[in-house]
Design a protein around this nucleic acid. Structure first.
Length: 550
RNA sequence: GGGCUUGUAGCUCAGUGGAUAGAGCACUGGCCUCCGGAGCCAGGUGUCGGGGGUUCAAAUCCCCCCAAGCCCGCCA
């Protein structure tokens, strides 16, 4: 919020001094070193390029104007090649703390979304097996993004797209069918590219119990029965895993439904009319090469089956034109990156501005076991199930680990290490700060403090370096929410929380909150509660709990 | 062979074109008669993969090269 205000003030100063300049791109940021002020701007250095003047002279002109803003700045200085450094007035920080105490759960909200409708589609794993830890990363990431976007003023829907038709489903059905035969004693040979996991046996058992004459039916019919049953059972399992992982979707969107409603045919027909679809070698092709893809892509095979691409075309048409989303965010596994160009191409063909679809590629989670790296594969049954990891490590720790990295950084998951309830786990560091403050408040009440009084505490008593540092973090929280949203980067919140918790622990160890001086104690309690509110709100954005005691 | 992503301290990773590139872990040694020791304090590390270029300023932008992962099917 403060950054925003300073930006506006600088913009006005530029307008006043240099009427010929219309728009420039400058930064107002927190400098790396404390002695460069609370905030700093490179505006003079940027203007140098346009004005061809000495940057220090430009900085001087501007800073003279900025010094007029006495309510905001304690000090304004020029440094180095022409940076303007600002020291904020403490009164500003005190005001923000009071706000935090008053606003509580909603402190830190920013309205950059203006109520725009956003659809975040994530996980969307094929219902061919249980969720593994790779899916967990996407689940944590998408859910956190949704929470952050809501906090940043967007109207958010979370959606899981179910691939409930197509080749993989047929293979799934056939896998169950074969295992059913095996269970009744028939000799079978189980193809390598069928689903190898043990859960297939479990489903086969259910199938045998449910359909008594299953193996007497024709193969086609039997496989279809197995397929539908398997999808249902696996999907239930997936929903359950996600719920336990604190991820709840607003919509479960069926791919099959796109065909049943005739939408696929309708949209393809529309593309045909525009001359973007042609027939060749008995198949239907979309001219994606016209829109930046390397080559044209098949939408209907010569076997007369639609490809997944056909579904995706209809699905995204529907997102924008039928449901009217202003922004669609798709979280895909990085192995799908080859599909980005063709989908973006389709959007272009349908005249949808490309910035309305953001595709975030989540890098793979590799499994580190016995010093050996393995990649996840549902089909080969090489994976660690999400539910297993969550059971052994806990939701909070798993989510926090997943959310402490940028999505395009690959993650080697050392299962043995993560399973340890190690105290070094950073999530406990942050949660511990929260629990500590809760305990502090209890203690305060026990010795006779009225916690309502903190709203009227004399905050000017907060003068220690650590106290001012904490006040500044509290004031900066909304900046980080904004950054996390605009950069689709929940881990910005994670880093912010680790920093805040660190300063709080330092402070707590060095100073006594509840001491002889009642007024000072009350001010310190107010500060602590402000920190607690920010930690709580931040953890909330990550979907991690804020325990009162641990 | 082409494409996407990545390469920063021993390890895991931050780093929105800016000032002396930062955390955590690991390692060593200290700190509770006192609000929670899942904590704190003190110790030191870098050819930012390499080479060019753009810029007043490059880990960051552009080009080339090297390495790793992934993708390159009328599979998903």
């Amino acid at each position: 919020m403060i950054r925003r205000r300073i930006r506006e003030i600088i913009d006005r100063s530029i307008q006043k001094s240099y009427t010929e300049i219309d728009k420039i791109n400058f930064e107002v940021e927190k400098p790396k070193r404390e002695d460069f002020g609370d905030l700093s701007t490179n505006v003079a250095l940027v203007l140098q390029g346009v004005l061809k003047e000495n940057p220090r002279k430009i900085a001087e002109d501007l800073s003279n104007q900025l010094k007029e803003e006495r309510a905001l700045f304690e000090r304004v200085e020029i440094a180095g090649p022409g940076f303007i450094n600002f020291w904020l007035r403490n009164s500003l920080l005190f005001e923000t703390l009071k706000e935090a105490l008053k606003d509580g759960d909603s402190f830190g909200k920013v309205d950059i979304g203006g109520g725009k409708k956003v659809l975040i589609e994530f996980v969307s794993a094929n219902p061919t097996g249980p969720l593994h830890i790779g899916h967990g990363r996407g689940a944590a990431y998408g859910d956190a993004l949704a929470r952050i976007f809501k906090f940043a003023g967007y109207e958010v829907n979370k959606e899981y797209y179910i691939n409930d038709r197509g080749t993989q489903m047929d293979i799934l059905g056939a896998s169950v069918y074969l295992r059913a035969k095996e269970l009744v004693g028939e000799r079978i040979s189980f193809p390598e590219d069928y689903y190898q996991g043990d859960y297939i046996y479990e489903i086969a058992k259910v199938a045998l119990r449910l359909f008594e004459d299953l193996l007497k039916k024709g193969e086609r019919e039997a496989i279809a029965l197995c397929r539908e049953l398997a999808i249902k059972i696996i999907l239930e399992d997936i929903k359950n895993d996600l719920k336990n992982f604190r991820v709840e979707f607003d919509q479960w969107y069926s791919e099959k439904g796109l065909y049943e409603s005739g939408l696929v045919e309708e949209v393809i027909e529309e593309l045909k009319k525009r001359g973007l679809v042609y027939e060749s070698e008995g198949a239907l092709w979309f001219k994606s090469s016209l829109f930046g893809d390397e080559k044209d892509r098949v939408i209907k095979k010569s076997s007369n089956d639609w490809t997944y691409f056909a579904s995706d075309i209809a699905y995204h048409y529907e997102k924008f034109f039928k449901r009217g989303y202003d922004l669609a965010i798709n979280l895909w596994g990085a192995d799908h990156h080859g599909y980005v160009a063709r989908l973006k191409g389709v959007l272009k063909a349908m005249d949808i501005p490309s910035e309305k679809l953001v595709i975030l590629l989540i890098q793979m989670v590799n499994l580190l076991e016995g010093g050996e790296l393995k990649s996840m594969s549902t089909r080969k049954a090489e994976y660690v199930e999400l539910k297993e990891l969550v059971r052994e490590v806990g939701v909070d720790a798993v989510r926090f680990i997943f959310l402490s990295r940028s999505q395009d950084s690959p993650l080697d998951f050392d299962v043995e290490l993560a399973k340890k309830h190690s105290a070094e786990n950073p999530v406990y560091y942050v949660q511990y700060a929260h629990a500590r403050i809760c305990s502090l408040k209890e203690k305060a009440e026990a010795v006779g403090y009225d916690l309502e009084e903190i709203h009227r505490a004399d905050l000017t008593l907060l003068r220690e370096k650590e106290e001012l540092a904490l006040l500044k973090r509290i004031a900066e929280f909304s900046d980080h929410v904004e950054l996390a949203a605009t950069q689709f980067a929940p881990y910005k919140i994670t880093y912010f929380l680790l920093d805040l918790a660190g300063i709080f622990h330092e402070y707590y160890n060095k100073f006594r909150i509840l001491g002889e001086d009642k007024d000072l104690s009350l001010a310190r309690l107010a500060l602590s509660e402000g920190c607690r509110i920010v930690i709580n709100n931040g953890l909330n954005l990550l979907g991690v709990s804020s325990p009162n005691r641990m």
